[in-house]
Amino acid sequence: MAQAWAWWRRDERVRTWAGLAPALLIVAVLFGGALWSALRTSLGIGGLGASGPSLEAYQRLLADPEFWPSVALTAHVAVTSTVLSVVLGVAAALLLRRVTIGRRTLTTLFQFDLPIPHVIGAVAILLLLGQSGFVSRLTASLGLTDSPADFPALLFDPYAVGVIVQYVWKEVPFVGIVALSVLRATGRDLEAAAATLGASSWQRFRYVTLPVLLPGVLSTAIIVFAFAFGTFEVPLLLGASYPAVLPVLAHQRYTDVDLASRPEAMALAVLTTLIVVMVVLVGVALARRAVRQAGT
């Protein structure tokens, strides 16, 4: 006992890993377990409708006419949401920084959407942008439209406009707050110095502010991309029924009465996970390189 205590006190590594163990155990068992079980089922090992280890589910999936449109739609939603959120979020941060009156209040109100769950956001966008929604009523009262059918179909549309609007609405404050905190941590000395040296406002943004913002903003972009790629309840409420985004497609296959669809659902889960992991790893590598280049 005394020996064990002495060993515990002396060995840094033991204490490090003992501290991490409970958290890592939860992640390994639940997250690892979930992916392991999805992988096994997708390969037809164990469970209902097991047919031995094979790539059959993946082959069926790749031959499915809905698969590639679904991939394209998911990529479109994720990329468009990310680009718009990042551009508008950074613009909002630069704007908020220059606010002269009531900056504190505006910054607080700016963060209002952050803790709001996506289901609420989706319901709010439904009531706002539907063909008989709030904006449509405004255009009708201004005489721009006569009936709900005159208002453009922004929801349940092939371009997932409603889904993207919901993501941008939710993630602009996220990007903005990260950008603001980076700007605040850096202060304005560098920009002031550049201005003293005769840099124009564009040059100051391009060569001073942007390199400062780049690392934080790129990391945020990766996170926004992953969130938008995994979106489920938002397209379920605001999206078209065909093609569905990958997470919705996976759920449809999982709840299909035909149990033979289960391996396909799991194959979709595995593929979606792989795509997100790859984008995150590539994104982190690119972000690192961009940071190094901006630094030199």
Partner: peptide, 11 residues
């Protein structure tokens, strides 16, 4: 970052 639906159906 991994989509919740993937974790959910796996678990």
């Amino acid at each position: 970052l991994v989509p919740g639906i993937a974790v959910a159906i796996g678990l």
